[in-house]
C-alpha cells in the first residue's frame, strides 16, 4: 500500500448511498425512494424507518417501479428508484428509455449490486449490459462511482440534477482512491488519481481500485502509469482523453461490464475519430458464459486485479 490509498473507515458505496440519502431527506421532504422489495439489499431500512412518508414500495415489479418514479418526478419529487442493476436496466429498460429519458423526468435510477457483485448467483443477477444499453439512450447520465467520496458527491448531484441519472455500484467496501478528497466532483469530469506518462489506465466503478494497485506496483518497477477514474461513462470526459492521448504511449480501459458496448468502446470510438493510433486494450468481462465465483474471483479470473492489470500493461508496452 502506498500513501495514496487510504484504507481506513471505508464502506461499501451502497452504504454511502444510504447515508447520503438519509442526510438529504432530513432537510428535503421531496427526496423520495422507490423500492421493489429492494429496501434491505439497498440498505434503505433505516431510511424507511426515519422517513416512512418518503418511501414508496411497489413490490417486485421493476417496470412499475420506474413508471411510478417517473410520475413522482413529473410532479416535482426528487426520486431515487432503487433496484438491483440487473433487473432495473433490463426488465425496466423500456420504462427508463420512455418514461425517464424520453419524457425527461429527472429520476435517479440506482442500480445496486451492479456488475458481478452478486458473484456466484450467476448471470441472471449480473449487470454486464447496462452501460451498453443506456449509452444508446438519449438524455441519461451514466455514472459508476469508484469510492465513497465519488458516491457521496454523485448522490448529492443526482438529487438535484435536471437530467435523468443512472448510478450503479456494488456492495463491497471500497477504499478511498485519494487520501485528500478535495477534487471538484462533477458528472462528465473524470478524476485523475495518479499521473504517469508511460501508459494511462482509464477505469470506472470498482475496477479503479485494482488499477491503482497495479499502478503502484508498476511504479516500483519503473513504469509510470496514469490512473483515471472515469466515473461518468456518458457524457464521456473527452478533454481528459485528448490530454492522455497526447501524453501517454498506450491506453488501457477497465470496466465491470461486458467488453462490448461499455466504457472501453466509448473511449475507443472517440479516440479513433481523433486519429489516435497507439496501443489500446479494453479490459472487462469477455463475451462468454461468465465464470462462477465471487466478485473478486471473477475479477481475478478475467485479469481485473493488481497482477492481471500489471501484466496487461507490460504486454501492451512490450516490457
Amino acid at each position: 500500500m502506498t500513501e495514496q490509498i487510504n484504507t481506513n473507515h471505508h464502506k461499501a458505496n451502497l452504504e454511502i448511498f444510504s447515508e447520503t440519502l438519509q442526510r438529504l431527506a432530513q432537510n428535503d421532504r421531496d427526496i423520495i425512494a422507490v423500492t421493489s422489495d429492494s429496501r434491505g439489499s439497498g440498505k434503505l431500512v433505516p431510511f424507511g424507518n426515519k422517513f416512512p412518508n418518503q418511501i414508496v414500495e411497489v413490490g417486485i415489479a421493476e417496470q412499475n417501479l420506474v413508471g411510478v418514479a417517473a410520475g413522482l418526478a413529473a410532479c416535482g419529487k426528487k426520486v431515487f428508484a432503487v433496484s438491483p442493476a440487473c433487473f432495473l436496466t433490463a426488465r425496466a429498460l423500456e420504462q427508463i428509455k420512455n418514461d425517464i429519458a424520453y419524457s425527461d423526468n429527472p429520476v435517479s435510477a440506482i442500480g445496486i449490486s451492479a456488475g458481478v457483485s452478486y458473484g456466484a448467483l450467476g448471470s441472471t443477477h449480473h449487470s454486464l449490459h447496462d452501460y451498453a444499453a443506456l449509452r444508446a439512450i438519449n438524455n441519461i447520465i451514466i455514472v459508476a462511482p469508484a469510492d465513497n467520496f465519488e458516491t457521496e458527491k454523485a448522490i448529492e448531484l443526482a438529487a438535484n440534477s435536471n437530467i435523468p441519472v443512472y448510478l450503479r455500484f456494488g456492495k463491497k467496501p471500497m477504499p478511498f482512491l485519494k487520501s485528500n478528497n478535495d477534487d471538484v466532483f462533477a458528472f462528465g469530469k473524470a478524476r485523475t488519481i495518479t499521473e504517469g506518462e508511460d501508459i494511462a489506465i482509464i477505469a470506472t466503478g470498482e475496477t479503479v481500485y485494482p488499477a491503482l494497485e497495479a499502478a503502484n506496483k508498476l511504479k516500483a518497477e519503473g513504469i509510470n502509469v496514469s490512473v483515471i477514474s472515469m466515473h461518468t461513462i456518458k457524457p464521456l470526459d473527452t478533454n481528459i482523453l485528448d490530454k492522455i492521448a497526447k501524453k501517454c504511449s498506450a491506453i488501457i480501459t477497465i470496466e465491470e461490464h461486458s467488453v462490448n458496448g461499455g466504457l472501453g468502446e466509448a473511449c475507443a470510438s472517440y479516440l479513433i475519430q481523433q486519429q489516435f493510433a497507439k496501443p489500446f486494450k479494453i479490459m472487462g468481462i469477455p463475451d462468454e458464459y461468465t465464470v462462477t465465483g465471487s466478485q473478486e474471483e471473477i475479477f481475478n479470473h478475467y485479469g481485473i486485479s493488481e497482477q492481471g492489470i500489471a501484466a496487461q500493461v507490460k504486454l501492451l508496452l512490450r516490457k
Binding site: V56, N64, V68
Partner: peptide
C-alpha cells in the same frame, strides 16, 4: 404506472 406516481405525489 406514471399516473400512480403522480397520484402518490
Amino acid at each position: 404506472p406514471i399516473c400512480v406516481g403522480m397520484a402518490i405525489a
